[in-house]
Every structure is written in C-alpha cells, then in structure tokens.
Write a protein that binds this DNA or RNA. Structure first.
Lengths: 340, 340
DNA sequence: GATATAATTGTAAGCGGTTACTATTTTATA
DNA sequence: TATAAAATAGTAACCGCTTACAATTATATC
C-alpha cells in the first residue's frame, strides 16, 4: 500500500505538499497539485485516516452505545444517527450494551482508547455512576432518549405528557377501567421511561377522577411474550379492564393476542393503545392506535448536537424535547358510542 | 491525557518496558511491572488503540456494510456480528448503503482508508463490479446472505430449497392456485434472493404438476405496503389464489391485510406463508407460517469466519449454508381437510 | 533593477505506540 | 571463579500523516 512518502517521491515534491493537496490547502501551485494527483492515482494512494487521526487527534468517529440494535426502536434511532453522521463525514462504532452497567463501562473505555470524538449514549438508566464515568473520561456526550438533571445535552420526548395524552384519549373514548403494562419502575426512583409514562398515566386518571386499580397495573419486559403474559394475568383477575395501555407497541401486540386467546375481541371488548409507532403498528390487525415517537429524529438530532459540540459550535438548546403524536388507528373503540 | 512516555518517566523505565507490560510480554520483571502499573494508574493511563493500530497495522476493527439497519432482518444479523466481534475484541463500524452501488463503493473506500481488518458485506447484489472493487482493495471479505461463484467466503441459507420447502408445504395442504409476491428479479440474472426463491417455487410447482399462473406472480419491494398492494392486485384479477407465498414476513403481513380488506379471511379463504421468521411473525394474528432464516447466526458465523481469516487461521469451509426451517403457525389451512 | 510582499515549498518534529536489535544484569554450569 | 546462557531493559527506528517554521521563488511596487 502506497503511503505519502511514495507519492511525494514520485511527484517530486515534499510530503507536506502531498498532504496539502489532499487537504485542499490553498497554498499549492496548480502544477504541484496536478503532479501529486497524478502520482497518487498511479500508485493507488489513499491517505490513511488512521494516521491522520493520530496526527490531528481527531478521528471523525463517534461511539454509539445502545442496549440492543435488534430492537426495532433502537435500529431506527441508529439509522437516524448514521445518516446524519454520514453527511458530516463521521463514522460510527456500534456497541450493544444490553443495559448492563459492566458492558457499558467496558465499551466507554474502549471507545475512549479509540479516541472517538464523542459518544451517543442510549440506555435505560443514566445513573450518577455512569455520569461520573463519562465525566472522568472527558468525552463529549449526548444522551438519546433519556433526560438528566446533569449538565449534559439530551434529546428526548416528553414521556409523561405522551402517556398523559394517551390515557386522556382512552378516557375521552369512554374507558374507565384502564390497565397498564409497564416496564421496570425501579422503585420509581430513576428517570426511566416507564416511570415517566406511569406518572403521565396517573396524571390523566387523577384529572378525570378515575380509580386506578392495582390489579390492572402489570410489570413486563418490553417484549411481545411479556405483554402477552401481563395481559393474560390481567384478564384472569377480578377487575376486568375495558382498555389497556401498553408502554410499547410490541407489548401491545402481545396483549392483543392475549385478548384474542381469552376469547375476547379487540377493540370491541378491550381497547389497546401502544407506544412507539413501529412500522408493524399499522401492519397488524387491528391496526394499533399508539403514541408515535420520532425515533429516527431522536437519533438524527442527537447526532447533529454531538457533532456541533465536537466542532465547538454553539448549540441553541442543550435539552431537546421532540414532539410525540397520537396515532389513532383501530385498536381503540368509543365505549360511549358503543352503548348507544 | 497521559501517554506512554509519561508513564515510562514516572515509573523510571523505558517506553519499551511500559509497552511490554501492557502487552503481557513475559520478559518483564515483577518489579518493573508493578511500578509501571502503579504509574499508569496514578496518571490514569490507557494505551491508545489508535497509535497501536498504526504501529501494528492492525485495527481490530471490522467494517459492516448492510442496506439498512432499520430493517429487522439486518438488525438481527448485525446483532449476531457484534456479539461475536465483542468476544474476540473486535469493534464494528456500521454502514447503511441502501443497496446503492455508489454508497457501497464510498463506504468500502472509507473503510479501507481506516485500515479495517476486514469487511462483512451484505447487499442485495454482489456484482462483478463490486467483486473487483474488493479485489483491488485487497481487504479480507466475507459475504453475508449472498452466495457467489467467486472465491469469496460466504454464509447463506439455501434460498431455493427454502422456497421449495415452503411451496411444497402449501401444496401438501391442498393448495393449487398459488400466488407469489417476490422482490426484484433483475431479469433472473443475478443471484439475488428473490430469483433463487422463485426458482425454488417453480421447482415445487413443476414437481407437483401444478400450473403457475402469471397473474398470480407479483413483484413488490419487501415492504408491508408493497405486499399489501401486490396482494390487492392479485385479488382483483381473474384467477383467485388459494394461497400466497410472500418472500418476506413483512410483505406477508401486508398481504394478510389486503385479504382482510377484501372481505376475505386468512387462512380460511387464502393461506399465506412468509419468509424470515421475524419476531413479529408469532405476534400477529393469524400467527404467520413462515420459513425461518437464522439471521443472528448468519451474522455470527460470518463474523467468526472473517476473524479467522484475519488471524490467518484455516477455515474449514468457505461456503457455509445454514439451515432454514419451516415454522408452521396459523396462516395456512389444510384445504383438503376443509373440504371434507 | 532593487526591494517589499505574497505565494509556494520543504524540513523536521511531533502524534503514541511497537519492536528489532543491542546492552546489561542474573542465574546456571563447569 | 570464570564463562555461558537466560532474563531483563533500553535505544531508536518506524507506522503514515500534519503542521509550525524556515526557506525559496514569484510577483508587485517604486
């Protein structure tokens, strides 16, 4: 593989000139430029980004830590990130940390020793511990999908408001006994999606003066089977829900199947509302009413922010809250209309 | 950020010794090792993978070119790759090329100038052109999901046999007028999934002496809406299918909806079989009968192969064909039994 | 034509590691 | 104790690039 010296020699110039040509420096004569380009072509020379990174202490690489790329939510976020990075000539190193603290720390250290210019971190938890690990390492950081009180930029949606909107919609459709399938609430302490969403749910219920039944609040794992099991339990209980709010589309799908399998109909007997608006939400029957998250944009905006920070450009707002949207399809029915 | 010189100075040894300590070289005295480790800790030193890569001409990085990570098939493949890479201390640079030749070439060149140790390439097409581009660049390469006659390792499933099995299953259930929703056949020239699968379909039909109706062969785009449209067209034609074989689960889902929307039932009126076995296949109703591809393993095996090649280890077989599996759920009915 | 100024180009010192080779110290052996 | 062999440590070149600084050449000005 030809290197810069080979090109310099063949073009009869110094390596500095070769470097200048490949960095579009203005101070190169047309003659020199041409002979360098010619020599480079002849040798099949391409500058080594690696060597350049070392010399410039800038890798044009960003690290990406997500729980699991095979989860459609994250793969959409990652796609948004990669598209933006591609535009700005950055590349991404993908890390699946499975929400494991150990793996996260391990990946952070690896990324640091690879001199990534910055990291986009997306995890269920952003704890004090992780905060300090990042702080110690002094790596530019943007949080995706997770807010924090620390002085770290993030891009999220307003999960509480989103859940409030979803719940309010159910209530507006005449539902009263509303069940919830949530994720880990972790003692309601940390700022995780499920906690915010659960508060949003409670807000709406309280506002409407509706009773929240403990039997209708089920914890699950954001997987289809989990949603299925949670709904099944709920249906076997004493209090029958007339609607269920699942904190993810996947769990909602599971819940719908549980309803079918119990010999009931969705939405006629029980309405279901999901969260995320994955592609599959409009593909299944009944098409899923859900709260849309702008997943692609969460990634895209986070990437833009990080790149701006890396380039020392001002970012207008460190805390970006993107809009969610209620997508009404067929999995919720109007109970009031039904009665008439 | 402390570097190797700082550590050497503080520990009162040479940089060579520091390097040896961090590379677990046997020829370092216990005393020297300790003082180096102590100094390193004091300075918060971590060797720079970047500098090491330059010196050793080995980056422990592999490039990953896929069409689109937000497609669940690919995100599963990528997860398999990353897991294996993680085990062997490799990291991956993720590239979404959208099956665009330009983007692919661009990414290949970028990866090369980043000195990746190898590339896993997954694209709908592996043409002569791309083959020569890789060959010119002399980068270790493994193809995922795509076979080739060139001397390049790959890991695939037997698409033709898989489609044959699926079709044969439909036939065994008494279906006679079988429709197909396929992807781009590209003049039946290149070895793309759809072509192989289509041949498999024809094999089975021929073997059973069944007529293949042109009106029941529809091209689509591997998307839900595409599957929907294709099925809709098919249902409006003169020949009514009693079963449809969609070359992806996503298209199958679309087709099922088209059936519903036409006032028909699946599987009672029309059976549907898909391809892939995405998670969602078992979540929807009717649960989808489909041909399972070992997506995670395609990725995992490809990664293992590539790493072996990079490490100059013998690989037992350059052409790996993983097993597919027919997953029977509820979207196909037995027509013969039905008639009785 | 002399001189100031601007445009080009080259030299060489990093960036932070690895490692061949050499030098030194220890330990084993006779 | 002398000597050979083994273990340990250091020196410095190298990986391929960027860039401050110095040097050279071209162009403009008087």
């Amino acid at each position: 593989m030809a290197n810069i010296d080979d090109v310099a020699k063949l073009a009869n110039v110094s390596t500095a000139t070769v470097s200048r040509v490949f960095n579009n420096s203005p101070y190169v004569s047309e003659k020199a430029r041409e002979s360098v380009l010619k020599a480079a072509k002849e040798l099949g020379y391409e500058p080594s980004i690696l060597a350049r990174s070392l010399a410039m202490k800038k890798t044009n690489t960003i690290g990406l830590i997500v729980p699991d790329i095979s989860n459609p939510y994250y793969s959409e976020v990652v796609r948004g990130i990669e598209d933006v990075c591609n535009i700005y000539k950055y590349n991404i190193i993908l890390c699946n940390a499975d929400n494991s603290r150990d793996k996260e720390v391990q990946y952070i250290d690896m990324l640091k020793s690879r001199w990534v210019d910055g990291i986009i971190f997306h995890s269920d938890y952003f704890s004090d511990e992780i905060y300090h690990i990042f702080k110690d390492r002094k790596i530019p950081l943007v949080l995706a999908g997770r807010a924090t009180n620390y002085d770290i930029p993030y891009v999220v949606i307003d999960n509480r408001k989103a859940a409030y909107d979803a719940t309010k919609y159910l209530i507006s459709q005449g539902h009263k006994k509303i069940g919830v399938i949530h994720g880990n609430l972790n003692g309601m302490k940390e700022t995780v999606d499920s906690v915010d969403r659960f508060y949003g749910f409670l807000d709406a219920m309280k506002e409407a003066g509706l009773k929240v039944y403990d039997e209708l609040i089920k914890e699950s794992n954001f997987k289809a089977k989990g949603g299925y099991m949670a709904a099944k339990e709920m249906l076997m209980g004493n209090v029958k829900p007339d609607a269920i709010f699942a904190f993810s589309d996947i769990m909602a799908m599971g819940a719908i199947n549980a309803i079918f399998d119990a010999g009931l109909k969705c939405p006629e007997d029980i309405s279901i509302i999901g969260f995320d608006n994955l592609d599959l939400a409009e593909v299944t029957r009944p098409a899923l009413t859900t709260v849309a998250q702008p997943m692609y944009d969460i990634g895209a905006v986070a990437a833009r922010m990080l790149i701006k920070i890396i380039d020392n450009k001002k970012i207008s707002e460190k805390r970006v809250i993107l809009k969610h949207r209620l997508i009404i399809r067929q999995s919720c029915i109007n109970r009031d209309a039904q009665k008439i």
